[in-house]
């Protein structure tokens, strides 16, 4: 599958990465090589084989609906660059 510069720009936009023109060129080539390498797997016949999404044995892993409690508000906000009124403060989302 050929990777174009447009693909790189799209993925960078989704990941909120600001790339320079040189980086875009560089990553286009690098991503192409990575994908070509992984493409080797397509040569294997996997018809009828379910994808191995999980490598540990499947079992039910649930917890009871019990309130354990939370952390104090000031701890929750301690990493926030900006805060106000007990909230994280971010640039306005809607006009």
């Amino acid at each position: 599958m050929p990777i174009t510069k447009k693909d790189v720009e799209h993925v960078a936009e989704l990941a909120r990465l600001a790339l320079t023109e040189e980086e875009k060129e560089l990553y286009t080539g690098q991503l192409q090589r990575i994908l070509d390498y992984v493409e080797t797997l397509s040569g294997v016949n996997t018809r009828g084989v379910p994808p191995t999404t999980y490598t540990v044995p499947e079992r039910k892993a649930v917890r009871a609906d019990t309130v354990i409690g939370s952390i104090p508000q000031e701890d929750a906000l301690s990493n926030a660059p900006e805060k106000a009124k007990g909230c994280f403060r971010v640039p306005r989302i809607i006009e």
């Binding site: 106000a84 403060r89 971010v90 640039p91």
Partner: peptide
């Protein structure tokens, strides 16, 4: 104070 800001409650 909150001109141009949004507040987030999680």
């Amino acid at each position: 104070d909150e001109e141009g800001a949004s507040l987030v409650d999680l």
